[in-house]
């Protein structure tokens, strides 16, 4: 089976390619001209150079491809560039895949697509919860990911291509900064960390190898056609436990200052008022809406996909964290 992986130079995409090769799949990897290809060039795969934002550059990409894992998104540059790469790019990939008669299309979405502002505190969020109703207020990443997922959902409804949407949680693993934005704000090179909100909030963590395993198993899971799955490991860790682990693992002796969520929301309110001033119109991103999206105390339910696939991570969380921080390359 030949699998096309988009975003193959990214954190998830590059590991997906490696694991697929390991499992003896044929892989075609979409990367941009300027992407770092050092890791991919060492693997026995076909590299396709193109840009999700540029339809012309994608001509011929589906040649010989049976299945697609669309992990590509534009997370840098201006808002317009992000929209082109993430939203338009998703539409291009779907159209090209349909045209080529692809047998399975897995779209990598995100947990940011949930309508966090209407979801009550302490909810256990499963796949049936509503999509973000005001993506324009939720920041560029949430906006582009929500809009793209809406498009994918439309294609599920209106086309016959078998499509599965996955929403991975916070993916941890080597090759990335594991100080997630959801952990708070770090200042002075990590010497001071502002810890936001409830210490006991559970983080929706998923170890990159578990994420990859679930996605690859979904390639063969017909029941998953037209369905949406959260990907979150069954073992949970609280905000405060993870932060402690992180600081020890990277050898930081930071001063951690806890900030109550209500206080941060007050700051959000002030910024919202400043945003209303004609000279500053919309300059500050720190609005209460966006703070809710990032820091609200909720839990995510990742049990659906594990139950359906009848697969559970073999490594314990201690082992996975150890590998992510110290062993994996």
């Amino acid at each position: 089976m030949k699998v096309l992986v988009t975003g193959a130079a990214g954190f998830l995409g590059s590991r997906l390619v490696e694991v697929l090769v390991d499992k003896k799949y044929q892989v075609k990897a979409l990367v941009r001209q300027q992407s770092n290809k050092t890791l991919l060039e060492k693997l026995p795969i076909e590299i396709f150079t193109g840009d999700l934002a540029d339809k012309e550059s994608l001509n011929g990409i589906m040649e010989g491809v049976d299945t697609v894992i669309h992990a590509g998104a534009t997370t840098f540059g201006t808002f317009e560039e992000q929209k082109r790469g993430t939203i338009d790019g998703t539409r291009y990939m779907l159209d090209l895949a349909i045209e080529a008669g692809v047998k399975k299309f897995i779209y990598i979405s995100s947990l940011v697509v949930y309508d966090m502002n209407s979801i009550p505190k302490n909810s256990l969020i499963n796949e049936s919860f509503e999509l973000e109703r005001h993506p324009e207020m939720a920041g560029p990443y949430a906006y582009t990911k929500t809009k793209s997922e809406q498009i994918v959902q439309e294609y599920i409804k209106n086309t016959d291509m078998p499509i599965t949407i996955v929403r991975p949680g916070l993916i941890y693993g080597a090759r990335r900064n594991m100080f997630f934005p959801h952990l708070g704000f770090s200042a002075l090179g990590g010497r001071i960390i502002l810890k936001i909100g409830c210490e006991k909030k559970l983080l929706p963590m998923t170890y990159i190898y578990n994420t990859c395993e679930v996605i690859i198993r979904l390639l063969h899971h017909d029941k998953g056609n037209g369905r949406i799955y959260n990907i979150i490991d069954p073992k949970t860790i609280t905000y405060s436990q993870y932060l402690k682990y992180y600081l020890r693992a990277v050898g930081l002796k930071s001063i951690v200052i806890p900030i109550p969520f209500s206080m941060l929301k007050l700051a959000g309110f002030v910024f919202e008022q400043l945003n209303k001033l004609p000279k500053l119109r919309g300059k500050f991103g720190l609005t209460r809406y966006r703070l809710n999206t990032k820091f609200k105390k909720v839990r995510y339910d990742g049990s659906l996909v594990l139950k359906e696939l009848k697969w559970y991570p073999e490594l314990s969380m201690d082992e996975s964290l150890e590998r992510a921080f110290h062993v994996d390359k």
């Binding site: 073992k235 949970t236 860790i237 609280t238 436990q241 993870y242 314990s316 201690d318």
Partner: peptide, 11 residues
């Protein structure tokens, strides 16, 4: 079950 499935509990 929530406690057993937590990092705090271990394996």
């Amino acid at each position: 079950r929530d406690i057993v499935n937590s990092f705090e509990f271990g394996d």
